[in-house]
Design a protein around this nucleic acid. Structure first.
Lengths: 257, 257
DNA sequence: AATTAACGGTTCACTATTTGAACTTCTGTT
DNA sequence: AACAGAAGTTCAAATAGTGAACCGTTAATT
């Protein structure tokens, strides 16, 4: 692993659930030497990527990240555009909604609106979703660039549950189905007891760049709900795509692959 | 410079004005070898910190940053809390407002609301503000931890304009004045023709963690406007501090140093 | 009050990663 | 078709990274 990779791996140890870590703890988690860990943290801190609490001496993510994220958003306002739609969909459905963005081989959850119901699906912000094992992944593949699709179909497919799609033909089939009806569905492919539908968010060229997913406890869904949620996800994802690509308004703007 | 430092230096080449760069261009800008630059970019891309446009092959900041920034904000909602107040202040004053957060020795601009007037001050998102040379810096120092203040007073003070405060006594004096009246003022200390007032945003322990500043063209300010703006910045910064520190509502919650 | 354990942080000989000149495509321009 | 500049690759040389052992503090435990 490169030194930079190690530094970034350290960053990934911070999550909404565990936003602060001590030096030794972090070193243990990452299996790096304490001296190494510290040197990396110091470098990161010099650029505001992490910061150290002056009194507890624990480390946390720094303001430089907010700054960089804003630079990105000002150029490519993915979240800015998506979040209001995500909220609206959360309201309408009462279910957990999550928004993902494609990044180096998988989908990264960049926003979550949790259902307010007691029995709900929890999705972690920052969760990495495999392309083959989630409704989001399949929705993405249904409109992915040929090279990404190929790489995924030819790559290994880990089984997260007994229900995970792990064969190339099954996955192709699922992606084709999602492409023709406009949304994907996956029951318990990644987590048992969870049923999800998802629709792809498209770039101006018609390829997927992210997904919008509705995740419900399996106990709450039937064929009807599922179809209804699928339609809703599709409609909202299409609205988002339009907004992102210069408002040619409403419906999917291209049928081109 | 450490390898990690180099990678992060590359990230800093991206700005709202220049959000994408080609490999050679980036290597030239940073004065790194092309091979080095590429290896660093590949490492960054593996973690979604940058991404490469598939067709133009240019690099830009990646979704991993949005994710990490959100993790930070979910733990420490600095921007989330501040931005509405910043907007409101921008409306009320009609001037450019900027929000900064302290990070490793200086202030980092994390949000900007530009004045809508034709003659306005432009502040770049991500701009690094020196503690000794800006209204924000002085406001920060007025409530800074003793060690930070000491380091600043004893460190070198670059003169950005003929008006920059560069002596220890002048700076101490400016910080004391800001402390007693609640806001700082600096005319042309960083950029000629710009007059700013700023107030510190405090942590629960009463120390500054950031600042809120109003920047106006010198031609538009007089003693009255300045005092009025100063009071406004102070009031809003105090409101923000209260919100951040668990709503003991209104006014500065501590007089303790 | 003394003892222990765990923490953050530092050092320096050893070693593995990083570096960069030179190379090969590839792409768009004259 | 020749050229210019871009992206990306290679490998010997050199630099930057590593980690065991260290110190000083703090916070439990006896």
């Amino acid at each position: 692993m490169s030194t930079v990779g190690k530094a970034l791996f350290l960053l990934e140890q911070f999550s909404a659930a565990e936003p602060e870590h001590g030096l030794s703890e972090l070193a243990r988690r990452a299996s790096f030497d304490k001296a190494t860990t510290r040197r990396l943290l110091v470098s990161l801190a010099e650029h505001g990527i992490v910061e150290q609490d002056i009194e507890s001496r624990r480390y946390r993510l720094g303001p430089g990240l907010s700054r960089l994220a804003r630079v990105r958003e000002s150029h490519f306002p993915f979240q800015q555009v998506c979040i209001p739609y995500v909220r609206e969909l959360a309201q309408e459905t009462g279910e957990t909604i999550h928004l993902s963005e494609y990044s180096s081989g998988s989908l990264m959850t960049v926003h979550v609106e949790l259902s307010t119901r007691a029995n709900r699906v929890n999705v972690d912000l920052g969760q990495i979703l495999p392309l083959h094992g989630t409704a989001s992944g399949i929705a993405f593949l249904s409109r992915a660039r040929a090279d990404i699709l190929k790489a995924c179909l030819e790559g290994p497919m880990e089984a997260y549950t007994p229900f995970t799609v792990t064969s190339r033909t099954q996955l192709e089939e699922a992606a084709n189905q999602a492409r023709s009806r406009g949304y994907s569905r996956s029951d318990q492919g990644f987590e048992e007891g969870v049923s999800s539908v998802a629709a792809p968010i498209l770039n101006a060229d018609g390829f997927a760049i992210g997904t919008l997913a509705i995740a419900s406890p399996l106990s709450r869904v039937d064929t009807d709900t599922c179809e209804r949620h699928g339609q809703m996800a599709m409609r909202v994802a299409a609205d988002i795509s339009s907004r992102l690509n210069g408002e040619p308004t409403a419906l999917q703007n291209e049928r081109a692959s």
